[in-house]
Design a protein around this nucleic acid. Structure first.
Lengths: 352, 352
DNA sequence: CGTTATATGGAGAACGTTCTACAAATTGTC
DNA sequence: GACAATTTGTAGAACGTTCTCCATATAACG
């Protein structure tokens, strides 16, 4: 009688690659080969293994996969889940990923550098196959350091000089120019930009890019000297306070370009409260063309950058990088204007 | 000369538990003990290991951890990232998790049962420690089956009879009652509810609960016979079409309770376009008290359920379950009314 | 000083994959 | 029919943890 009878296959109830192998009467390696559809599998073998997988409803353990090879998961890092622009990006990512065998896991950093770092590290520690970082706060050098360990695509991060990772953006400078051009076309000359407070957003952030575009467009029209950029704090209630101050200024301009719909919509609300008519007293144009902007009640003109498309493009870039590309790619989409009543009172408006 | 010189510690550059052990001059097991602060570690040993971890900036691999023990990650499954209510829940989850050593990973199912299943399975395969499912679509039996494999807390899922998993909800029946009571208090008698199309939302969903509450409150006031519930499709453009039809009805009621702010806000917009005055011609009350509802432009009365609190409570429940609780908990929070101009024209309104 | 508790550290077997080397079987070639 | 080339399948070593035994060293006790 053999002492070595420690062959107790059913100790646990989890179906592993070993269960499949036994059931199909083949080796573990064979099953693995079929899974990865590697070279050297006969049709007969493949069929048997596929059947066994089907019957047992086998799912490979992502944890184990991660330990050895790929985990078939890509991590998405969001700076802030509240911005209605971001869900669009996610939708784009999921759309591209759906037919593939990859899946997305999302982390939310709440714009804290600390948390952002630790989430990126976690995703690396999970052996995820690649990362899409949306509007990250970390400086380029740090990202480059991470990019050595894992393929990275940054979205909403203007660093065309990066060699270690890819970037996908809409041309925010151009977007701001379009906004200014639209205001100019309506006849406004005194145009101000409401931007984000100094401490938010670094040099490569979308905000600063939009400022550059704003300045350039104003300059180009000979209005360079009056190209004022107001800085609005990001958090309540200081934000509202700053906007109220702006609205009640004696020398308030007749047109304003807000760096984001988020701010523009609040500005619209406050304007209404304070009896400032839009667009008669003040024309407003935002950025992002969020779903709220499109509401009849709001009717905010905005610069559209398709978040969905951005997500799609970023995902495709990431996959190509995962599959071996090493040279950096820097993709720039062109934004477009969506004109609405906050810019100029249109025919189908509500002022009958 | 020994043939066995395969001791090449620096083959890869990843700092593993082995690197730490070598650096500290102790065994791998010792380091692991310190990490888990298990029994049987002297202060001296702990200090040396801690130092080594610090110096080497060691991070344990989540993949490896998952394979053997816990991964210190909890999965959050969102039905839809667009609903502004959900970010609040995430904020609550992150808030509770931040000081702990747990981290949240989010999956977005886009309300597809297929994707929801596969995401839950993935999270199990990652050996996550627990799951928070927000408004899942899967039937209770399926969730129970998953709950055998991993601790689960369902949010926005009314199944107080579930024994395998916990639920955390606001009392949606009560919320609807509060809405009706508020409308009654303003003197409205002909009240309709605009709910979600039949095919969306199952018996345990929040929508159906709100319908029950609506009916009960109407019945209680002797208005049971006129308690009409209209069903609005969830997707554009059918949604807008149905709402337009409602707004142009000859027998349109004077007050309407929308199952969600999402719909209420669109209704408000269409009402404005069609010249239906709110609240003079039609009073509207929504549900969720989303940030958009609070905008001065919108000014939508709503039932507030603190998403943040829901997230916090759910997270705490999950952690206690991970730590061993096996009896099911079913938590019910009480929602509250936030009155605004869409309900009744208040003094500080804009109609000067 | 011998015996027994107790505190401390380490060996080594999992966990479920991937993937390199290699063996065995089959086919092709002269 | 001998040999090489090719195809097909398998053994078994990683991967980086956790955690159950064990082996010591030290303290306690008579």
């Amino acid at each position: 009688m053999p002492i070595e009878d420690k062959q107790k296959p059913q100790r646990n109830d989890r179906v592993t690659i070993r269960t499949v192998a036994t059931h199909a009467g083949v080796s573990v390696a064979a099953v693995s080969k079929v899974m990865r559809n590697a070279y050297g599998v006969s049709d007969a073998l493949r069929a048997r293994v596929t059947d066994a997988i089907e019957v047992l409803a086998y799912r490979p353990s992502r944890a184990a996969r991660g330990l050895r090879g790929r985990s078939f998961t890509i991590g998405v890092l969001l700076i802030d889940i509240r911005n209605p622009f971001l869900p669009e990006v996610i939708a784009g990512v999921n759309g591209v990923l759906a037919p593939s065998h990859y899946q997305a896991m999302i982390g939310v950093s709440d714009a804290r550098v600390q948390l952002e770092t630790s989430l990126i590290e976690s995703m690396i520690d999970y052996k995820m196959d690649g990362l899409i970082l949306v509007a990250p706060r970390l400086p380029s050098e740090i990202l480059a350091k991470f990019a050595v360990q894992i393929p990275i695509v940054a979205v909403g991060y203007h660093d065309a000089g990066a060699t270690a990772f890819d970037t996908v953006n809409t041309d925010d400078q151009r977007g701001a120019e379009i906004a200014v051009e639209a205001l100019l076309a309506c006849g406004y000359r005194d145009i101000e930009m409401l931007s984000l407070g100094e401490r938010e957003g670094h040099a490569v952030s979308v905000v600063r890019q939009r400022e550059i575009g704003f300045r350039r467009a104003m300059q180009r029209s000979g209005l360079g000297s009056s190209a004022v950029i107001g800085k609005i704090p990001i958090a309540s209630p200081k934000r509202e306070e700053a906007m109220r101050k702006f609205l009640s200024r004696k020398d308030r301009p007749h047109a304003v370009f807000c760096w984001s719909d988020l701010d523009a919509i609040i500005l619209l609300s406050l304007a209404m409260e304070m009896g400032v008519r839009v667009p008669e007293d003040l024309a407003v144009i935002g950025y992002d063309n969020s779903s709220t902007a499109a509401l009849g009640l709001v009717n905010l003109a905005s610069i559209d950058q398709s978040g969905r498309e951005l997500g799609q493009v970023a995902t495709r870039a990431l996959i190509s990088r995962i599959e071996g590309r090493t040279s950096a790619e820097h993709i720039l989409q062109t934004p477009s204007l969506v004109s609405r009543n906050s810019l100029i009172r249109s025919g189908n408006g509500t002022d009958k």
